[in-house]
Design a protein around this nucleic acid. Sequence first.
DNA 1: GTCTATAGATAGATAGAC
DNA 2: GTCTATCTATCTATAGAC
Lengths: 217, 217
Amino acid sequence: MNDVLTAPAPAKKSPGAKRPPLKKSDATRQRILDAAAHVFHTKGYALARLSDIAKRAKTQTGSIYYYFASREAIVAEVLRIANERTAAFVNGHIAALPADASVEQRIEAAIHGHFAIVLSGDKYASAHMRIFDQTPKKVREHFLRVLDEHAEVWRSLFAEARAAGVIRDDVDLSVMRLLLLGMMNWSIEWYKPGKLSVDDIAHQATILFLEGVGRRA
Amino acid sequence: MNDVLTAPAPAKKSPGAKRPPLKKSDATRQRILDAAAHVFHTKGYALARLSDIAKRAKTQTGSIYYYFASREAIVAEVLRIANERTAAFVNGHIAALPADASVEQRIEAAIHGHFAIVLSGDKYASAHMRIFDQTPKKVREHFLRVLDEHAEVWRSLFAEARAAGVIRDDVDLSVMRLLLLGMMNWSIEWYKPGKLSVDDIAHQATILFLEGVGRRA
DNA sequence: GTCTATAGATAGATAGAC
DNA sequence: GTCTATCTATCTATAGAC
């Protein structure tokens, strides 16, 4: 179990000096993971059967065990990838800004990035939001730590904003960060593509977060 | 199944003109429900075994079926009670205000009420937050409708605020409502009693919602 | 009304052929 | 590497004694 969680990501060994040859077995493993992310997202962890995953991955239930030691090892890997992608996405949105962007602009970019990955159908990220707290305790505790590491981006963004004097003094930065993340993460529970785009939602959330719904005096 | 969901709450028949006599069987039923709420809250729906519930209710797994037709009937009843209590709590907080309270004050009261029931350990309400989307599809769909009815309080509060001119024109009321509820509901994922009280959190959330984190110009 | 015993079904995991 | 067959455990739900 612990192995599952603490083992580093398979260190893509390049068996020459060339690009990874994309072996057949890697492709199958990938299909299983993609299928798992999809099934977890759709049915939740509890109702996701290995047979559902196998079917979608066009393989057999038994075959899965050639790649993964257990059902739990599959979720763990799905969650690991989800975290990796989410962090990369948020960081990417921030990095895409011009070097002289204000801290408000960077917060806005981070919010857009987070909504984008949560709502735009990345199977792994949406599976993560959906199943995280259905997951076995050990797995959950492990990824709570990972999540906390990734929260560092937000923490430093907020600290910087306060230092720059753009955040009012009577709010607690940790609470604000957690409320903001909650508001974004929960959106998967209600958002249905339609009238409003993901960017619209992100924009509305940015207004709410930075300025509130109240009319300025 | 449908019976489970559409049946009205057991219509406390008073077999005289007196107060309900609190039969023994009612007490047992109540113990089972309380136990179920606790176990659901603690382990999630998927991992909650009828044997866990029976043990905590000091009865036997088989005995549960004297009171409930199925495992599903138990969750349905737990969710029904949770919704009832949450609505009553939020409405109660609003009603406790003086008659001439402003709409901002009523929104603040509603926020305090919602945080209070979610974070202050009401077993039913916290079970609801924790297990809702692990629940069988039919149950979930039914309570989504119930939830939507209860959202009416928030809708009218927001509509009133806009009519009173205290909400800025460039925000979508539905999106605001959903973001606010998400921010509150997700808080159960991170809140641990400690430095900050539930009221502190609610106060911070109210500032965030009405005024935003940004410093006023 | 509450208990014990057990039926019946399901699903994760393993073994072994190919 | 992938398949089929099966073991084993678990859990909901029912039957029937008391």
